[in-house]
Nucleic acid binder design. Structure first.
Lengths: 342, 342
DNA sequence: ATGAAAGCGCTAACAA
DNA sequence: TTGTTAGCGCTTTCAT
C-alpha cells in the first residue's frame, strides 16, 4: 500500500530470501526458480515495493531517461512530437524528459549533454540553430539522435522524413491543380538549419519538372516558422507586387498566418491563391478554409529515434545510421476549390 | 572540460581540502573561509565538476524535480502551460517533468505520487477526471498543488483564475454587444471536473444579471474540450433548431471548432453568431475571424504553483491555500463586427 | 572552519 | 540457484 519507504531488504525479509534474489527478480534475470520468483513477487505486491531509481542510477550509471530537445514546446508540431515521444518511451519503459532550447545555439549545445546535471541515457534533438556537424555527443556524454536535417550530414544517427520528396509532392499537387506561380515561404538561408533548405530543394525540383523556372522573388525568407512570419511573408509579397497563385509554406503555422494575411488583403483561398502547409497539425483540420498539408508520421519518428538510442545503449557501435519515416499529403480545401463548402 | 567523471573527491584533492568542504562550497554553506571557497571554486571550474544528482537524491531524498501532470500535452493550452512551467522552474533551479494523464482517473491518481518510480519534490496537477477531494498527496508522497477546480474544495493548495468572474466577463461582453440568446458550450456534468461548472455558473450569473433566464437548451454538454467537440456542439444546436445569436465556449479549441461548423452551416461570425472562447491560445489570434477570448495569466499560474510547492518544501505546514491568478478579456473579431476586416 | 566516516538503496562481483 | 558484500557519489553527524 504505502510505497517509497519499502526497500529491497524489506521485500527480501518478507519473502525469506536475500536482496540479491529480489534484485534478480525485479530485473527479470533468468537464474531464479519459479517458486522463489513467485514468493518475491508476492512480497513486492504486498509491500508495494517500487525500486528507488536514484539508487539504481547511482549504481549503474544509467537512468532510464532520455532527453528530448526541441526549440520550444508551445508550438503545435513540437508539442505533438513531445506527446508521442513520451508515449513511445512509456511503452518501452523509458522516461522522456522535455527540454526547450529556445532555438539558441548555446543552449542547444549545452543540452546535448542532457539536462543540467542530470544523467540521461540518450538525447534526441531537433536542432534549430546548430549545424548538423555540431550535433554530436560530447566525449563523455550520452548518445545523440538528430531529427530532421540533411541526409549524409552529421556524425550521429538521424531520423527524418524525405523532406525533398515531401516538398515535391506538395508542389506537384499544386501544379496538378493548375497553379503555375507558386511561392515558397519559409526559407532560412542564414541558418545552419538544413530542413528548410531541403524543402526548398523539393520545391525547385517540382517547379523545374513542370517546365517552370522558380523565381527568386517567389522564394520568401522568414525569421522563424510561426504564424506571424507567414502573415508577414504574404504582406511582403503583396507589397512587392509579386504575382502568385499558390503558396507552399514550410510549416502549417506559416500557412495559417499566410491565409490570415491573404484574407485581410481580400484574396480568397483557394480561388485566388491556393495554400499548402507542412506538418499536419490539428489546427489545419478546422481552419477556414481547412489546410492541405504534408503530414509526417510523427509516431514513427518517435519510435525510430528511441529505437536508435536503444541500439546505441546496447553498445552497438556503428557508423551513423539514417532512418526515414513515411509522410503523406493530406488534401483539404485550401488547395482544392472542389472540396470547399459554401 | 570533461564532466561527469569528476567527483567531489577529485575536486577536494585538487583544492587540498576534504570532500566535506567541497560539499559545503557547492551547497553554499556559510562556514567556509573566503580563501578556501575560492580555491574550491577554482578547482571546480578547472575540473568541470558537476554534482551527481542521483547520488544527491539518494542521500537527501530530494530530487530538485517537480512533476507537472496534465491530461495531454498536445493541446495548445496545456503545451503553453507546460512551456511556462518549465521556464518558471528553470528560473529557480527546478527541473520540471511533464506527465500526461490522458484524462484517465487511474493514471491521475497514480501520477499524484510522481512519475513511476521517480522521486519528485512536488506534483502540480491539472485534474480532469479526478474530483478535487481525490486530489491529495499520498501519505508518503510528495506535496501536491492543484490547478483549476472550485475554491474551498480539496485539501491541497490550489492555483486558478477566478473562473466565475472570467465567464461573467465573457458573457457580459457578449450582452454588451446586443446578443441576447447566448449558448454555453462545454458543460461536463458527468465529470468531477469543477472548472467547467464554474464557467457555467459565471455564464448563468451574467445572463441573470441582464434580466434573462438561461435556457437549458442553450447549455451544451461536450465529451471533451477539443475542436471536434465544438463543431459537434454547433451541429447539435442547429439540428435541434435552437435559436441563438452567440456562443460562449469554455475553451478556445471548442470555439475554433464551433466557428468551423458555423461556417459550414452558412452562418457568419460575428454577424449571425458572435463567439467567445477561453484560454487565449495562439490559434485564436490568426483564425478567420480572429477569436475573442479570456486569457488567464499562465505565467503567473506557473509561478504561483511552483512557489506554493516551495513553501511546502520548506516545511511550512499550513491549511490549504488558494492562489488566484489574473485574467483578462481579449476582444477580437469573432464578437465584434466593428473590428472585422473586409 | 574543516576532517573522517557512515550510510542512502541498489547492482554485481565473488562465494558457496 | 542463492547469499554476502563492496561501493556508486553524495550529505551530514560527530569529532576536532
Amino acid at each position: 500500500m504505502t510505497s517509497g519507504r519499502v526497500r529491497q531488504r524489506d521485500v527480501a525479509e518478507r519473502a525469506g530470501v536475500s536482496v540479491r534474489t529480489v534484485s534478480n527478480v525485479v530485473n527479470d534475470f533468468v537464474h531464479v526458480s519459479q517458486d522463489t520468483r513467485e514468493r518475491v513477487l508476492a512480497a513486492v505486491a504486498e509491500l508495494g515495493y517500487r525500486p528507488n531509481l536514484a539508487a539504481r542510477e547511482l549504481r549503474t550509471g544509467r537512468s532510464g531517461t532520455v532527453s528530448l530537445v526541441v526549440p520550444e514546446i508551445d508550438s503545435p508540431y513540437f508539442s505533438d512530437l513531445a506527446s508521442r515521444m513520451v508515449r513511445a518511451g512509456e511503452a518501452i519503459g523509458l522516461t522522456v524528459h522535455i527540454a526547450q532550447s529556445d532555438g539558441d545555439p548555446d543552449r542547444e549545445r549545452a543540452l546535448l549533454a542532457g539536462p543540467p546535471g542530470r544523467e540521461v541515457d540518450g538525447v534526441v534533438i531537433s536542432p534549430w540553430a546548430l549545424a548538423a556537424d555540431d550535433v554530436r555527443p560530447r566525449g563523455d556524454g550520452p548518445p545523440v539522435v538528430m531529427l530532421g536535417e540533411r541526409p549524409g550530414q552529421g556524425s550521429v544517427d538521424r531520423v527524418a522524413i524525405d523532406n525533398v520528396a515531401a516538398a515535391r509532392d506538395a508542389v506537384a499537387h499544386l501544379l496538378s491543380r493548375g497553379r503555375r506561380r507558386i511561392a515558397a515561404v519559409g526559407l532560412q538561408p542564414h541558418r545552419a538549419n538544413e530542413t528548410s533548405a531541403l524543402r526548398r530543394e523539393g520545391y525547385r525540383q517540382a517547379v523545374a519538372a513542370a517546365g517552370g523556372t522558380h523565381q527568386l522573388g517567389l522564394e520568401v525568407v522568414t525569421q522563424t516558422l510561426h504564424r506571424s512570419d507567414g502573415a508577414a511573408a504574404v504582406r511582403r509579397l503583396l507589397e512587392e507586387g509579386s504575382d502568385f497563385d499558390a503558396l507552399f509554406c514550410f510549416t502549417d503555422e506559416l500557412a495559417l498566418g499566410a491565409m490570415r494575411a491573404l484574407h485581410d488583403a481580400g484574396l480568397r483561398v483557394p480561388d485566388d491563391v491556393a495554400v499548402v502547409g507542412f506538418d499536419g497539425i490539428q489546427d489545419g483540420a478546422f481552419s477556414v478554409p481547412s489546410l492541405t498539408t504534408v503530414r509526417p508520421d510523427v509516431t514513427r519518428i518517435a519510435e525510430l529515434a528511441l529505437a536508435a538510442l536503444g541500439r546505441h545503449q546496447a553498445g552497438e557501435e556503428s557508423t551513423p545510421t539514417e532512418y526515414v519515416a513515411p509522410h503523406r499529403l493530406v488534401v483539404r480545401e485550401s488547395s482544392c476549390a472542389c472540396l470547399q463548402q459554401k
